[in-house]
Design a protein around this nucleic acid. Structure first.
Length: 354
DNA sequence: AACGCGGGGCT
DNA sequence: AGCCCAGCGTT
């Protein structure tokens, strides 16, 4: 059964797989690494353009390691999970300083790099160096759980261990690169999360999940998501051609991205009510300002939070000190990375004075 | 072992 | 609205 599975996947890859990607067949470990970091929890279609931007701007790991952090974040802007960007920069510096710019070529040394976990280490080790490590990502969990009818939750420790062992047993000797590529493409193209193509699937006749009508119920997950609502009010405070921003540093969403002066409330607030609140006074104190406009409410859905944001445009004639914030020329805003909801606001020019 | 972290596409 | 995506680091 295992032999059939592996061979069928390799056959499918050779005969029917037409999925193309800019990094497919790539042997430069730097490029493979870059693509894998970009693709963590990210669809191929979404990451594609980012990969090409990064290769163009930073052709080598030395280029990336030497790049200004803000420029790299700006390039990453909009891709999400910004800790990946931070860790990627740290790893680039690690490779330059510890490995003299040569990408490490053993599984353990690859795994030791910042931002590289079990999946990414196996991917780089197999794709770049053909080392015998099976990848275990969302596709692999799904394909294995269905074909072998395994209902151990994939988000449990036991499940991860069980699937990792099975995946490793299925890995054909000397073919880890093409096999790993096969199973992930197969999961994305045929054994999809919704509406898998079972009627044309070359593995269906031996797929236990399919034969028992369980494909829609596999893989099993235990945890359910709780989504909380948050309300952000951004004071877009302008003094002449300057606007006040800061970098987000707390343990929260959008770490290392920039934002305007933030007041977070526990629920929706009227702009007038907000102006008389303690939070507003704590920031603005006795500063004389003019309220020029209030934007519509922007809604952004994150995995685990719904963010409602409204932008209040304030201007002052005398330059104030705002604790924690810096006044920057507004024509330089595009050198800073902002979360999507703020770039949306900035794009919507008719609302604003920008 | 559990949780937090973006943004986008599809149903 | 809910689910998932070439997962990882922190607590």
């Amino acid at each position: 059964m295992k032999q059939f599975f592996t061979n069928a996947l390799l056959d499918w890859n050779n005969n029917e797989n037409t999925r193309s990607m800019p990094w497919k067949g790539e042997k430069d470990p730097y490029r493979i690494w870059l693509s894998e970091i970009i693709l963590q929890q990210t669809r191929v279609e979404q990451g594609w353009a980012y990969y090409e931007k990064f290769i163009l701007n930073y052709p080598t790991v030395q280029d990336l390691a030497a790049a200004p952090e803000e420029a790299v974040f700006r390039l990453w802007q909009g891709l999400g999970y910004y800790a990946r960007c931070k860790n990627m920069l740290a790893a680039a510096k690690q490779i330059v300083s510890q490995y003299h710019g040569h990408f490490p070529n053993t599984h353990d040394s690859i795994l030791s790099l910042k931002g590289i976990g079990p999946y990414t280490a196996a991917a780089i080790a197999s794709f770049a160096f053909n080392l015998p490590h099976a990848v275990l990502d969302g596709n692999v969990f799904r394909v294995l759980s269905r074909f072998f009818d395994i209902d151990t939750p994939i988000d449990s420790t036991a499940g991860k261990k069980q699937f990792a062992q099975l995946a490793q047993e299925l890995l054909p000797h000397g073919l880890s690169a093409s096999y790993n590529q096969s199973i992930m493409d197969f999961g994305a193209v045929v054994c999809k999360p919704q509406q898998p193509a079972c009627n044309t699937c070359p593995l269906a006749k031996k797929c236990k999940g399919y034969q028992q009508g369980l494909t829609a119920l596999l893989p099993v997950k235990t945890k359910k998501l709780v989504i909380k609502k948050r309300y952000f009010y951004y004071l877009v405070l302008q003094h002449k051609d300057n606007v006040y921003i800061r970098k987000r540093t707390e343990n929260d969403i959008w770490q290392n991205l920039h934002e305007f002066i933030l007041i977070e409330t526990s629920g929706p607030e009227d702009p007038a009510t907000l102006q008389s609140s303690a939070a507003f006074k704590a920031i603005m104190g006795d500063i004389r300002y003019n309220m020029d406009a209030a934007s519509a409410t922007f809604k952004q859905q994150l995995t685990h939070q719904t963010i409602h944001s409204q932008f209040l445009l304030l201007s002052v004639s005398k330059k104030p000190e705002i604790q924690g914030y810096t006044a920057v020329p507004r024509n330089q805003l595009d050198s800073y990375a902002f979360p999507k909801t703020i770039t949306d606001f900035l794009k919507n020019r008719e609302l604003t004075l920008f």
